[in-house]
Amino acid sequence: MAQIKRTPLADQAADLLLAKIRSKQWSLGAKLPGETTLATQLGVGRSTIREAIRQLAGKGVLETRQGAGVFVTALDITEEWDTVLQRAGIVAVIEARIAIEAEAATYAAERRTPQALRAIRKALKDRQKDHENTESYVDADMRFHRAIVEAADNPVLLELFDSFVPRLRQAMIEMLRLGRSLAENQDHNAHADLAEAIANRDGRSAYELSRTHLTALKGALQ
């Protein structure tokens, strides 16, 4: 026989506090009332309020500052990044990729080392080769773009790019299998020009070339 599970009071209190935050009763950066006031408002004990605050602090919504109080640091619980990407449409992912990679191309042109440039050129050469299947071609393309982001020498941008790869890879494979792609020569030239702009430390051209190429890719995917 199934048993009714009782939700702990602290969990209920955390849900109520989160509901107040979501409804904008407290704005971002606002200080929450004291434990006694909150306990009275929610009809629970102070220890329950402390546990509820601890839960929401662990989720990034609240922050306890020693001697100052409890403050709102986010207006909702942030979803896991993988979940967001899985649910997002591929066009939205490409638009985010444009924002990341165009800036990364600029930084790559400014910061690339001789070693990083060699990696970009090797990835470009590998991308030109005949590949046995669609998957290997897409993987070669991803390696080229990753080499550019890596040359930007910004670990946050690289982490963001890497998080996109699984979602992008599948979309690219599906696009190519459906026969939807950019003209081969035009596509290769776009990648070669981007690599050359980075080699010449031309940040402005690298930015524009990256943005133009990815915008065309977005159009092909729509």
Rank of each mutant, 00 (worst) to 15 (best):
P166V: 09
E79T: 10
S27H: 13
L158F: 05
G89M: 04
N154Y: 09
R143L: 10
T37Y: 03
A183C: 03
H145L: 05
A192Y: 13
K125R: 12
G29L: 00
N133F: 01
V93A: 12
H191T: 03
R167L: 01
L85Q: 00
E150A: 15
Q25T: 11
K24E: 11
V165F: 03
L75C: 10
Q170L: 09
S136T: 10
L178N: 11
A140E: 08
S47N: 15
L176Q: 08
G69T: 08
G179D: 14
G58T: 12
R201G: 06
L9V: 09
A92M: 12
E196F: 00
G219K: 09
Q25G: 02
L221M: 11
T113R: 04
D82F: 02
H131V: 01
L16E: 03
R112E: 11
Y137R: 11
K31G: 08
A88F: 08
V84D: 00
T106A: 13
Y137D: 06
A109V: 01
D130N: 15
Q3N: 03
A199Q: 15
R97T: 11
R50N: 00
A206C: 02
R180P: 01
A57W: 01
R65S: 06
V72S: 02
T73G: 08
Y137H: 13
Q170G: 13
E110S: 07
L178P: 00
E35L: 08
S23M: 13
N133Q: 07
A192L: 14
K218V: 03
G29T: 05
Q115H: 14
R118N: 15
E79P: 05
D139R: 08
I98G: 05
A109P: 01
F161Q: 07
S181G: 13
A105V: 02
V70G: 06
S163F: 13
R87Y: 04
L157R: 11
